[in-house]
Write a protein that binds this DNA or RNA. Structure first.
Lengths: 159, 159
DNA sequence: GATAAATTCACCACAATTCCCCACTACCCT
DNA sequence: AGGGTAGTGGGGAATTGTGGTGAATTTATC
């Protein structure tokens, strides 16, 4: 069992999947589901970087994954006006936190507000990142397109 | 835990990120947010170098990072008119200070004036440096671009 | 050159937030 | 059945952000 886990890790294919409905406590803390935690590389140092997602949710990256994004930013020329703005827009909303002894992270209030998350949170495994949604917002999001799962699959997965 | 932190530091990937709204007191002092302070290398010796940014903000570098900037400046040809002018402009406005016992630095008045910062200051983690903005100026700056966050995120976060 | 004024600097104080630890319940696995 | 793990909640200590005071140093004035 442990062996398989290691193999997958070496291949860099330790991805997040699945769906969990948890609660946000009065302090804004959210537990990271054990199943997802098992996919996090030790390189992440129990640290996660949160930022606004592109669709009204919060994106949560294990530190090692996030650092790949920052590595790309480092290659840009920060003195170039466009690249500079690029860097600021990305980093502006990024905030990091380390798991506490109960495997929770503290979500900044502004992110919770952005995603309209209050007491309940839908935690979504999404490949290299974890997404936090207001459950109702997510249900709405799914409805927004007239396409059925079958139609979308056919389009996206076309080889 | 400490070990991993050191590794990241060795790789030069201890970067600044996030956004903080703090106040500037009557003497021109600004606290450096604890989260940013944690990313500062011990080599910096609690010392920061401030200078004008290229876009109406104040750039704040930990001493060790600033020294890398100076190394680059040394590589320029000071007798080349453009290079010489750039060197003079940066250094003219460069000023250093060490954290006081409350983790604050004193910002020179001319820099505050340059960035139009008065009572409130937006502190931005921007990779190797920290930027100080007038919050309204920054909001204006973000609006000025045709690019949306979604577009930029799609470009950087992809893959 | 002596004194006064102004500025800088180091230190003290406080409220609010954050962090860290402890406790409890429910579920899962063997 | 029971030991272990997982998710939830809360309290107290430590840290953080903010303001201010007074000594030391510098600058200005006579």
């Amino acid at each position: 069992m442990g062996n398989c886990g290691e193999f997958i890790q070496i291949l860099g294919l330790n991805l997040f999947r699945g769906q969990f409905t948890y609660s946000v406590d009065s302090k804004g803390r959210v537990s990271i589901p054990a199943k997802l935690r098992k996919q996090v590389s030790a390189d992440a140092n129990d640290t996660f970087v949160m930022t606004i997602g592109t669709v009204n949710c919060i994106d949560v990256y294990p530190l090692d994954q996030w650092q790949q994004i920052e590595a790309k930013l480092l290659e840009l020329n920060a003195y170039q006006p466009k690249d500079g703005k690029f860097i600021r827009m990305i980093l502006q909303n990024a905030s990091d936190d380390t798991l506490d002894s109960q495997s929770r992270i503290l979500i900044p209030q502004n992110l919770l507000k952005y995603a309209k998350i209050e007491k309940e949170v839908l935690i979504l495994g999404a490949l290299k990142k974890i997404e936090l949604w207001n459950p109702e917002v997510f249900a709405e999001y799914l409805k927004q397109t007239p396409d059925t799962y079958e139609q979308i699959a056919a389009e996206v997965m076309a080889q």
